[in-house]
Amino acid sequence: MTSGLWGAGLDDWYGPATPVVRRLRAYRPDRRGRITFARWLRVVLLRCFAACLAGLAVFAVVLHNEPGGEAWLVCALALAHASLMWRCSLIRIVLRPGEIVRFGVWRHVVVPVGAVERLHRESFRGGLVLETTGGIEVDFALFDGSLWDFVYDFSRVCADAMRAHTRSADTARGSRTATAVSRRFTWSIPAELLTACAVASLIAGVAGAVRT
Score class of each variant (00 low, 15 high):
residue 173 R to V: 10
residue 159 A to F: 01
residue 168 S to H: 13
residue 152 Y to C: 13
residue 169 A to H: 10
residue 157 V to F: 14
residue 178 A to S: 11
residue 157 V to H: 13
residue 156 R to S: 06
residue 181 V to L: 06
residue 166 T to N: 03
residue 160 D to Q: 08
residue 173 R to F: 10
residue 160 D to L: 05
residue 176 R to C: 02
residue 165 H to T: 03
residue 170 D to M: 10
residue 152 Y to I: 02
residue 179 T to S: 07
residue 168 S to K: 07
residue 178 A to T: 03
residue 175 S to Y: 02
residue 165 H to E: 03
residue 155 S to V: 00
residue 158 C to K: 00
residue 151 V to I: 15
residue 151 V to Y: 07
residue 154 F to C: 01
residue 163 R to S: 09
residue 165 H to C: 05
residue 150 F to Y: 13
residue 178 A to C: 06
residue 169 A to T: 04
residue 168 S to L: 14
residue 173 R to K: 12
residue 174 G to R: 03
residue 175 S to I: 02
residue 154 F to D: 01
residue 175 S to M: 05
residue 170 D to G: 15
residue 165 H to S: 06
residue 151 V to C: 09
residue 163 R to A: 09
residue 175 S to T: 05
residue 162 M to S: 04
residue 150 F to Q: 14
residue 178 A to N: 09
residue 151 V to T: 11
residue 179 T to D: 06
residue 167 R to M: 09
residue 179 T to C: 04
residue 175 S to K: 05
residue 163 R to W: 03
residue 177 T to E: 15
residue 171 T to L: 15
residue 164 A to W: 07
residue 151 V to R: 08
residue 179 T to Q: 13
residue 160 D to K: 08
residue 162 M to W: 04
residue 171 T to C: 08
residue 161 A to Q: 01
residue 169 A to C: 12
residue 156 R to V: 00
residue 172 A to R: 15
residue 155 S to A: 14
residue 167 R to T: 08
residue 157 V to A: 11
residue 152 Y to V: 02
residue 161 A to Y: 01
residue 176 R to T: 09
residue 177 T to K: 13
residue 163 R to V: 07
residue 161 A to L: 04
residue 176 R to S: 09
residue 160 D to P: 00
residue 174 G to I: 04
residue 172 A to W: 14
residue 172 A to F: 13
residue 174 G to W: 05
residue 167 R to Q: 11
residue 167 R to G: 03
residue 176 R to P: 00
residue 178 A to P: 03
residue 180 A to V: 14
residue 151 V to L: 15
residue 180 A to P: 00
residue 177 T to F: 07
residue 177 T to D: 14
residue 157 V to L: 14
residue 154 F to L: 10
residue 159 A to Y: 02
residue 175 S to V: 03
residue 167 R to N: 08
residue 169 A to F: 05
residue 170 D to N: 09
residue 162 M to I: 13
residue 177 T to N: 10
residue 174 G to A: 04
residue 150 F to T: 12
residue 166 T to Y: 02
residue 174 G to F: 05
residue 181 V to C: 06
residue 160 D to I: 00
residue 164 A to S: 12
residue 163 R to Y: 02
residue 172 A to P: 05
residue 161 A to P: 00
residue 173 R to I: 08
residue 170 D to Y: 06
residue 166 T to H: 11
residue 178 A to L: 07
residue 160 D to V: 01
residue 157 V to D: 07
residue 179 T to Y: 01
residue 174 G to L: 05
residue 157 V to C: 09
residue 169 A to D: 08
residue 173 R to Y: 13
residue 153 D to V: 05
residue 172 A to Q: 15
residue 165 H to W: 15
residue 159 A to K: 07
residue 166 T to C: 06
residue 173 R to C: 06
residue 171 T to I: 10
residue 152 Y to G: 10
residue 154 F to E: 01
residue 167 R to L: 13
residue 156 R to E: 11
residue 179 T to E: 06
residue 155 S to T: 04
residue 179 T to G: 01
residue 160 D to T: 02
residue 164 A to G: 12
residue 153 D to R: 11
residue 177 T to R: 14
residue 157 V to W: 08
residue 152 Y to R: 09
residue 170 D to E: 11
residue 153 D to H: 11
residue 171 T to Y: 08
residue 158 C to N: 03
residue 171 T to N: 11
residue 176 R to A: 12
residue 178 A to H: 10
residue 165 H to P: 03
residue 176 R to F: 05
residue 167 R to D: 12
residue 161 A to R: 00
